[in-house]
Write a protein that binds this DNA or RNA. Sequence first.
DNA 1: GATGAATGAGGCTTCATTCAT
DNA 2: TATGAATGAAGCCTCATTCAT
Lengths: 210, 210, 210, 210
Amino acid sequence: MPRPSNTAERRAQIARALLKNMAERGYEGASIGAIAAAAHIAPGLVHYHFESKREILLAAVELLAQDYAHRIERQLAPAAGDPAAELRAFIDAHLRTGEGADPSALACWICVSGEALRDADVRKAFAGALEGAAQRLVAIARRGAREGVFSCARADVDAAAAAIVATIQGYFVLAATARELIPPGSAADATWAMASGLFGLSSTTREASR
Amino acid sequence: MPRPSNTAERRAQIARALLKNMAERGYEGASIGAIAAAAHIAPGLVHYHFESKREILLAAVELLAQDYAHRIERQLAPAAGDPAAELRAFIDAHLRTGEGADPSALACWICVSGEALRDADVRKAFAGALEGAAQRLVAIARRGAREGVFSCARADVDAAAAAIVATIQGYFVLAATARELIPPGSAADATWAMASGLFGLSSTTREASR
Amino acid sequence: MPRPSNTAERRAQIARALLKNMAERGYEGASIGAIAAAAHIAPGLVHYHFESKREILLAAVELLAQDYAHRIERQLAPAAGDPAAELRAFIDAHLRTGEGADPSALACWICVSGEALRDADVRKAFAGALEGAAQRLVAIARRGAREGVFSCARADVDAAAAAIVATIQGYFVLAATARELIPPGSAADATWAMASGLFGLSSTTREASR
Amino acid sequence: MPRPSNTAERRAQIARALLKNMAERGYEGASIGAIAAAAHIAPGLVHYHFESKREILLAAVELLAQDYAHRIERQLAPAAGDPAAELRAFIDAHLRTGEGADPSALACWICVSGEALRDADVRKAFAGALEGAAQRLVAIARRGAREGVFSCARADVDAAAAAIVATIQGYFVLAATARELIPPGSAADATWAMASGLFGLSSTTREASR
DNA sequence: GATGAATGAGGCTTCATTCAT
DNA sequence: TATGAATGAAGCCTCATTCAT
């Protein structure tokens, strides 16, 4: 009479506990004991649900990437159908409200980028998340171009998307490590100016979306 | 007669050894033993020259920041006096030639950004380096504005500088973790387009500097 | 009506699973989880049928001893009634066919001898098995003496039986750890030569049984 | 001004500490902490001198094998030149005085044979020790044959040596696990009877060496 | 009887740091 | 200054055992 497996939730619970710890102490600094404590479970249980600490990291990155993708979709929804508005919403979703919203998630994100340097699987997941964002931008750009809102050369769309993703990612780093460098509230606007330039947005539309 | 102190060189030697290790294994992964080995000295000597591992990190960040500042100055020198050319040189110094040049330094830089999350002193040094770069941009912008090459509003210069620094920093992260996202050679050009937009560069000058 | 208990089979099944694991990884190396897997049952069930891992070991040793006793009886049966033939059969049962037959059982046997060093109950069971074999030899010797086939002094029978058991046991160890030391096929013959010497077998009979 | 390295002694000290623990609790049961305690050093030092616990085992087996070889040479020395006496001394060295002398060494020896089952390097060292003993016997036999003291067929010498080694090894196991099976004092005599039979010793000489 | 999750102790190993020389 | 040994605190992981279902 087996109990229904709760492995899935437990894994998520543990992965979230890692994220919480990682935000404060980094990946190495997040000990299995601390993770277990944060998850309110016994230390030994962690390795019942995960082969190794690295597996927890992978699960955590997966969670982070999912959260990220969902957040984007949620925030883009209201602007659906209007490329310029979608672009603006995309930028705001990342940079409005305190240049990066949740500082804990921000710290995690930067930690993960560091781990991605040394772990191919982490890199793959991390790059996948960024690529998802870039593709979203590309889709917006294509549609805008079709509708005549953008006048970006077809060939430059990928480069423009990468540039925007890079800028956002860079603002994340700055927000977490050198916040005083960013004039308050400037991140989204500067990115918007930059993005509309890259996408060839007419200045009329640009001002309207401000 | 006591032998002349070689502490200064030793410290640099050890800090460089940390950087080498950090690029491959991260800060936590760089053990004192490995650092000593990379510096070709005995493990015990490390703590003769440094109070703690953290002190080595601080020295290493200092080195990294100095290298960085020097590199910028060196690469901006030929363009001295021409704001638009300086801006272009600034961007190229960071993003030309393989989007980030030395992959080892790139990895270190990202590692350091991660450590900066948790260590105020590291953060200060890291932020200082970024601020130095931003100030250089501000100086270029001011001069360009004075000379009429740029038409950027005085109030927006700081924001523009931060945006450019953010973009560069973001490209670093992408180059190290999701290189496939960046169309080869596009980083400098896209940043240039973006920067000239933010600085209000006339399109004539913009094309000329291409 | 409660379902009929299957504890007995389960216990044997688990004990056999321990033996399988023990042959490959030793007693300590045989984890409850691995034992359960080898027995195709859930890990938790193991401790329903056994108080502790040590109990499984005791049951396994019991099984091993029984298998051993049965094997001897089976192989001695054809020679029943002829002391010299029985002696020969006894030796061959242990040392013919690859100096120790089943390598897995051989490994288990040696493992058990190691555990016997530290566990009185294991020692008792292990010694019991050896003693059974020795007594079988003594019985053969006594009968042979009575029938005039052997001329071993009454007092020396126990010593001779112990010597033969020791030799066999020693060949087991050699077969498992230093097989190259044993000229192929020599174990049974050498033991036979030795045993017939100890038992005072006439050289005529000795050759006949070759 | 480096201190002279004491690594060699430390390694031996640690290996001996393992042997002491292994005799009582087996290899797995000998924890690094217990080994360190037995060696009167800090736990961390163990892994400064050894890569892993397994390396300690290898060093310990080496020690054991050396001790063994030395012991044989020492005990054979008085009989040098007289093959029959050497053979007798060889047997007595192993089996006289309490059937196996030092019970701790005996337990270690059996433990090692168990580890040899699963570790090729241990097996090699263990087999090497046994082979050394066997070769010593072969040398004795050859000389005895040349001098006409033994009448063992040339081809059977290796088999005879293996048989004697096996018997001794088997007595070790019995002495450690089923001592009651061995009539006190019978081991050396029975082995002598057996060995002289295998080596074709004339009964006159045989009795003389008793 | 059976399942699989849960517990917590303990083991091996790594490592920053200290120390005697 | 320099060396290499020494220390002791964690850390990750394994595992026997227990428990709720």
